[in-house]
């Protein structure tokens, strides 16, 4: 008896259908079947009206990403399962069935300015160490398949207008390039770099196995600390300085140091509520008794260095 794959597929033509629906197909199962095989079988034998997209089969066009049992994946990469539900990527307008209009997001991603030098290279090849090139290539492996966008909780909460992992990946590609002169710190802060929750969900679905937390998020955050400017940079510096000064984390102290007195005063109602509940810790309190031990552990301050 031929084993079968049961696949339930999202169907919707915005021009003629009032609501989306799901259609179930049975596809004979074979050894080594990709999701792409299942869709091609349907296209060739069962239903030529089903719309889905693929192009390169080598994970390089990024155009065939769909939700497979709720998880984003490329149909040229993911193995078929005996029972599957296939749906279009979320967040995006549906063209038809599994095909979405990616343009709005891609335009945002490609809006990141390219490598911009101060002046044209005087001499080519430009002197760059090969090891540096290897590092620079990591974020540049991203093919904008948008799988990470579909699993990112920050994108879900903030919307893709405010938080797009592939945009940060693009920025990272240039931020670590010493030849580049665009202010990538400001660019990444404007792209809400510090809203990443470091949950690693993006890495689990990335078809090119890019270490996004380390090579993108951490790399960019380090860059902002180096500059000590911007929301994130100031916050981290304040956190560190507070620990240095008092030996423990102190919310009001961090607030004062990172936002300044004026902005801190605007948070006064929150402070009063904390005082009422007995949870307010004064930013001007004494350091803990073993402060020197703490300072030994976390190292000297910038000035002391």
């Amino acid at each position: 008896m031929v084993k079968e794959i049961t696949v339930s597929i999202f169907r919707y033509d915005p021009e003629s259908d009032k609501h989306p629906s799901y259609q179930t197909y049975s596809v004979p199962s074979k050894e080594r079947m990709l999701v792409g095989d299942v869709l091609e079988y349907i296209h060739e034998n069962l239903d030529g009206s089903l719309a889905y997209r693929w192009e390169c089969r080598m994970r390089l066009c990024g155009g065939c990403t769909i939700l497979i049992n709720g998880k984003p994946g490329l149909i040229c990469r993911e193995q078929a399962e005996p029972s599957m539900t296939l749906e279009p990527l979320p967040f995006l307008p549906i063209v038809r069935d599994l095909v979405v209009d990616r343009k709005s997001l891609l335009d945002k991603i490609y809006s990141v300015p390219p490598l911009t030098r101060q002046k044209s290279p005087v001499r080519l090849p430009e002197p760059i160490a090969h090891e540096v090139i290897l590092g620079l290539r990591v974020p540049r492996q991203c093919v904008q398949c948008l799988a990470c966008v579909a699993v990112c909780p920050a994108t879900e909460v903030l919307t893709a207008d405010l938080f797009l992992p592939p945009k940060l990946i693009q920025i990272a590609g240039f931020a670590i390039d010493d030849r580049d002169t665009v202010d990538r710190v400001q660019e990444s802060e404007e792209s809400n770099l510090f809203d990443c929750a470091c949950c690693h969900a993006c890495e689990e679905v990335c078809p090119h196995e890019i270490n996004i937390s380390e090579k993108v998020i951490t790399a960019l955050r380090n860059k902002t600390y180096e500059h000590g400017i911007g929301r994130g940079g100031r916050y981290i510096k304040a956190f560190y300085d507070t620990l240095q000064a008092k030996g423990k984390v102190n919310a009001s102290g961090i607030l004062l140091r990172s936002q300044g007195y004026l902005r801190a005063i605007m948070k006064a109602p929150q402070g009063i509520r904390l005082i009422a509940r007995g949870k307010f810790v004064s930013p001007f309190g004494k350091p803990i008794p073993d402060i020197e031990d703490i300072r030994t552990i976390i190292g000297p301050t910038e000035q002391e260095k």
């Binding site: 390219p114 044209s120 290279p121 001499r123 080519l124 090849p125 430009e126 760059i128 090969h130």
Partner: peptide, 20 residues
């Protein structure tokens, strides 16, 4: 090739100023 590098393509190197 030089044009591509000027646009921003990263070619592999043997030494910093020689392409592999």
């Amino acid at each position: 090739i030089f044009d591509l590098e000027e646009f921003g393509v990263l070619f592999s190197r043997t030494t910093p100023d020689r392409y592999a």
